[in-house]
Simulated assay, not measured.
Amino acid sequence: MEPKCILLLLLYFSTVAKSAYNVVDFGAKPDGRTDSTNAFLAAWAEACGDQNPATMVVPSGPFLVGRALFQGPCKNNKLGLIIKGTILGKTGYSDASEWITFKYVKGLSIYGGTFNARGQWLWACKAAGRNCPNGSTALTISQAKNVLLSKVKIQNSQNFQIAIIFSQEIKVEGATITAPGNSPNTDGIHIHMSSFITIIGSAMATGDDCISLGEGVSNAWIENIKCGPGHGISIGSLGDGTETTMVQNVTVSSVVFRGTQNGFRVKTWATPSSKGFVRGVTFQHGTMKNVGNPIMIDQNYCPVPGNCPNESSGIKISKVTFSDVHGTSSTQVAVNLDCSKSNPCQGIQLTNIKLSYKRKNHELAKSFCRNVKGKNSGFVVLLVAFDMGQENYVKIF
């Protein structure tokens, strides 16, 4: 190759190589005390404004960051955020609904790092019964497309740990999400009005749902999850207003629940004014370890007793499968399918279910089924734990 051609190639690759923007170069201090919010936003502005692939770098150390909106659209669709240190939220709390937000971005990859929102002050306020705000979501992905969260750690959010809203093609892999079991509303990952969402190989220990899917969620794949403590993996709650809602094409696979309030759950409000549907959902390969409600459809959800007297959910639930679910239930009703009297569940299928209930006065595990049309195949076995050979084969449908 001619020397001139080699020189041109070197010049070309030097222009397309990723530029790195280190937050320390913009004034951030890794001391956990200095407010580095503006430095982070300045580094983001440079990386986002770079027309070539770019990387924003957060080195080792604790960085104090307040409310921060990292906004696009950016001038490149190959933007990386590499976090080696810890991002600390400020102490106390405010009325802000979000802490760290990535909005209007496309082609963003976030690797590593710890986000510690330090939500203890707000939890204490709520525990004391004072007039407190709802709290901030630690990490929000909003109106974004093609975003990767890889090996991030989220800790002690005031409210939801991660929220994915109005977005498409979002992947979360290898996430570790932790908050005390008694922390209020600290869902691990909440998904709302989003499609083509993948969550794999992650662990959640929270004070609410490990993963919750709200209205407008479609084409979601959730696999290889460790959940507990927490409230399980839930679709809903849905239908608390008059708007039309839908959830469809969801698969939840290979989940280990440990000491959770629920396992696989669908819940809708008992309000006839609600409209919409849940359909095409598969819950499979679930391991239950002392779980309160391993399998549950609750269409009579009414958090405030007495507020929904003799009412019935307007949400239609169909084509929901529970397959290969085994382990132990901490309550006697291991399978609870309580559907709407005005909109009975259709096409519910149970396949290869084997759940046990720890013996108490020789009681057998039970199933509850109301307003359900479906079938079971393989086997459905409910048994007393530790009683060898004493099994109760239950025909649910």
Rank of each mutant, 00 (worst) to 15 (best):
C339M: 04
G174M: 08
D208R: 08
L88Y: 09
P303H: 06
V381C: 13
R265E: 15
I164V: 13
D31T: 00
Y12P: 04
S19P: 01
T328E: 14
E391Y: 14
T244L: 10
L64K: 10
N185D: 14
Q299Y: 04
K106E: 04
V16D: 04
E98L: 10
M246W: 14
Y93W: 04
A68T: 07
R67Y: 15
W44G: 03
T34N: 04
P229W: 01
V23R: 01
G230D: 08
K354S: 15
A144E: 01
V16R: 07
S330Q: 08
I6H: 13
G263C: 06
N156T: 10
D50T: 09
N185G: 14
N77D: 13
P272S: 08
S356E: 11
G89L: 03
I211D: 08
H362C: 11
L337K: 00
V247R: 09
R279M: 06
I235R: 04
G107I: 01
K90S: 10
G374W: 06
A220S: 06
P184G: 00
V304N: 10
F257Q: 02
I141P: 02
P303A: 06
S150W: 10
S167M: 11
F386G: 09
N52H: 13
P272T: 06
R279S: 10
G174V: 03
I164M: 04
S253G: 03
V152L: 11
G66H: 10
S273Q: 12
A39E: 02
L69Q: 10
K90L: 09
G241A: 05
K171E: 15
F63C: 01
A117H: 08
P62G: 02
D25R: 11
R118L: 01
R279L: 07
P30V: 00
L9A: 14
P53G: 07
G306F: 14
S318H: 06
L148A: 06
S340D: 02
G119C: 00
V24F: 01
F13S: 13
K90H: 12
G107Y: 02
N52C: 07
R258W: 09
Q51I: 15
G276P: 01
G32K: 02
S202Y: 03
N159K: 15
Q346C: 05
N307D: 15
I110A: 12
T282L: 14
I211T: 05
D25E: 12
I162R: 07
N224C: 13
V24S: 06
C227A: 13
E223V: 04
N38T: 13
